[in-house]
Amino acid sequence: MLPYVLKRVLSAVPVMIIVAVVIFALLRLTPGDPAAILAGNDATGEQLAQIRESLGLDEPILVQLATWCKNIISGDLGVSLLSGVPVTKMIADRVGPTLALAVGTISVTILVAIPMGIVAAGRLGGYLDRIVMALSVLGFSVPIFVTGYVLIYFFSLKLGWLPVQGYRPPSEGLFPFLQRLVLPVLALSGVYIALVARITRSSIIEVLGEDYIRTARAKGATGRRILLRHALRNAAVPIVTIIGIGIASLITGVVVTESVFNLPGLGRLVVEAVLARDYPVIQGLILLFSFTYILINLVVDILYTVFDPRIRY
């Protein structure tokens, strides 16, 4: 196991380098000029050239890439071209809301979706199955911003139960923190609950068709025991895969959720930085995202071997 983990971690290094270089190139090829954004509407060509020079953007792309790599190795992610705030500080300031949102969403998803899928599979074709499936389909038939608006409209404006927007770090009290997290998590988990419930259901149905389940059934094992003991365990691989993919692709939903509920997280930062061509910030974030992504995948792959001893590396 350990050599495998080590191997995977090492193989992540080239992935991260490729990602970093691709993003670097993509950004520099994209039309858009941080100097124009900095100087504002009525800047002349000469002013722009001066600003570009002072930011080091007039250097050849390869030189800029080399400088950036050199700084990364010494642990320096640079400063935002616009605000001059260090990238590490910007990320540190904004990682909290995103982490809270992501962890909340994943927990809710797992707690709700897997039981839903199991129940549906157990009552295949029955009313419960249909209701669960209909609900889960609805979950990803509506864009997150619409779900968000509806939730805010009812729970915050009409009923007045929860705040409309904003974020409080847990250090300022657990209640205010959770209070502001409920609606965003609900809005965001809809899609994932739908996805995971469906996959759970179909994987379990599939496993229930396997010979050993039929054998267990023939031996007189009860339906619930089969479902929980055999089916769930064997259906775990695709479920874990989907959850892993879900976490990795969470960021798109996070961007929208953070916008609708005004959470000052990384999702908004990444979009703002792309639109403003704030290169150091984007590159820093990409490093962070790819690192997180690789970590999650590693965990997923290890879980495969736990759930399904047939898969070995």
Binding site: Q165, S259, N262
Partner: peptide
């Protein structure tokens, strides 16, 4: 000064006193 990326959120926040 707060920035809200979505204007609707800002209006809602004013309505709810946030």
């Amino acid at each position: 000064w707060l920035t809200m990326p979505d204007q609707m959120t800002a209006i809602n926040a004013l309505q709810s006193g946030e």
